[in-house]
Structures are given as C-alpha cells and as structure tokens.
C-alpha cells in the first residue's frame, strides 16, 4: 500500500533520515519504534508532505506521491494524527471534527462518519460544544484521532499516541485503534512504549539515529533482546 525507498529527509539544511526502506501492507498495523530524536516524527511528516524528501521515493497505491503538497494527501486517503495533537485551539470539538471532513463533499457521508466517530469516542459527543482548550489530554487525543477519521482515511498515521497520557487512557485508545483497524483502515503508529506497541502491531520497524536498524514481525521483535538496547541507544 505504502512503500518508501531510499528516503532521505529532514529540516533544511539538516538531514535527519538516511536511506529509509519501509513498506506498509494493506490492512496491517505497523509500529514505528525508536528512541527520542531517532526521526520517527520526521518520517511521518515526510510521508504526508509536510516535509519534502531530500532523496528517494514514496509510493502509495501505485503512485509516486513525494512531490505532492500536503493538502492533497487527505484526498488520497492518508491522514495524520500529528504529534502534540495540533487541534484548532479556538474551535469547539464539533468544529474541529467538521474541519477533518474539509476534503469531503458528500454531506450524508460526513454526518454518518461524525456519528461513527461519536460511537468510537462517546465522550466527544458529550463535549461536542466545548472549545478544545477545555479538554483533558486524553480527550484531545481522541478529538485529534476523530478529526483524522472524519476524512475516512485508508491509511491512518498516528504520531506519539501515548505522549503525556495515563496508561488507562492509552489502553482505551489502543482498543479503539483495534476497532478502527477491523474496519479495514491500515495503521502506522509511533509509540514510545515498546511492549505496548508490539503487543498490538503486526509488524514493527526500529529507527535509530535516522536509519532503520531492525524490522520484522512484532512477535519476533518482542523476543529480540537487542531491541531494548537499540531503543535506549546504547
């Protein structure tokens, strides 16, 4: 579904990612692991077009997309839940969710999808009219995931799912992602906690200092003693 070849990227003139090879199969849950500063967020930002690659190619459903501007990605079915949620601070929960459907034109489908998001996150329905600044951290993350889902993506990229959230809240979010995956959405999730990330994922990639150092089935990675070493960067 998504294939990244020989990708180099970063913040000009600083190159962060080097020679990245990565592929995502349709319907799977892929975990992206690595210590802070490894380049996980940079990789997601490059895939969605917020950063332009220095080298290499990004293929999505048989099309080269690395030159496309960010606003066209969502129309192709790629949605990103960005690091730090990045909600529209002055807008209500409902307005944020409706902005998520900005690229959609069919009002019937938008209403149905809004209902679907409220089913997945009932608390968002309760908070519908509240400005997002008044939400708790977990609710903000739900709102950010909900906003991304409003574009009815085929591929959902989630950056730093659990950052700053209580473990109970993270468990709830992971269960919701399972439900989202069962509907046929492919997931690429950046997650700090190796054990949690690999418990849910089908496959995983480990990034370190801007390069992929390990990849494979989630189960194999879980049993690999060197993972902890890579993760800690020693």
């Amino acid at each position: 579904m998504l294939a990244v070849h020989h990708l180099g990227s970063g913040y000009k003139p600083l190159q962060i990612l080097w020679d990245i090879e990565l592929s995502v199969q349709e319907g799977e849950w892929l975990a992206l692991l690595g210590p802070n500063g490894a380049g996980k967020s940079t990789l997601l930002k490059t895939i969605v077009g917020l950063l332009k690659p220095f080298q290499g190619e990004i293929w999505y459903l048989g099309k080269e997309i690395s030159a496309l501007p960010v606003h066209e990605m969502v129309r192709l079915g790629i949605a990103l839940v960005p690091e730090g949620r990045r909600l529209f601070a002055g807008m209500t929960v409902r307005e944020n969710l409706m902005m998520g459907a900005f690229s959609q034109n069919d009002n019937g489908k938008i209403t149905a999808q809004l209902q679907r998001v409220f089913d997945l996150f009932p608390v968002l329905k309760e908070r519908e009219k509240q400005v997002v600044g008044t939400l708790s951290g977990g609710e903000r993350q739900m709102c950010a995931i909900g906003r991304a889902l409003m574009s009815r993506p085929k591929l959902l990229l989630v950056d730093e799912l659990s950052l700053g959230l209580a473990p109970v809240v993270v468990d709830g979010l992971l269960e919701t992602l399972v439900a989202i995956k069962q509907e046929g959405v492919t997931l690429l999730v950046v997650e700090q906690d190796v054990n949690t990330a690999l418990a849910y994922a089908d496959r995983g990639y480990v990034l370190r200092e801007g390069r992929i150092v390990k990849s494979g089935e989630a189960k194999q990675l879980l049993e690999d003693p060197s993972i902890q070493k890579d993760y800690l960067g020693y």
């Binding site: 960010v70 606003h71 909600l87």
Partner: peptide, 17 residues
C-alpha cells in the same frame, strides 16, 4: 472555516486538506 483553521494552525489545516 478554512481561513480560521489556517490562522489557528497552518500545518493542521494542510493535513485536513
């Protein structure tokens, strides 16, 4: 809405299309 969203967070606005 597009103008307001852009003023709040232009990257997030780009992400929603």
């Amino acid at each position: 809405n597009a103008i307001k969203a852009t003023s709040f967070d232009k990257d997030a606005a780009g992400l929603v299309g």
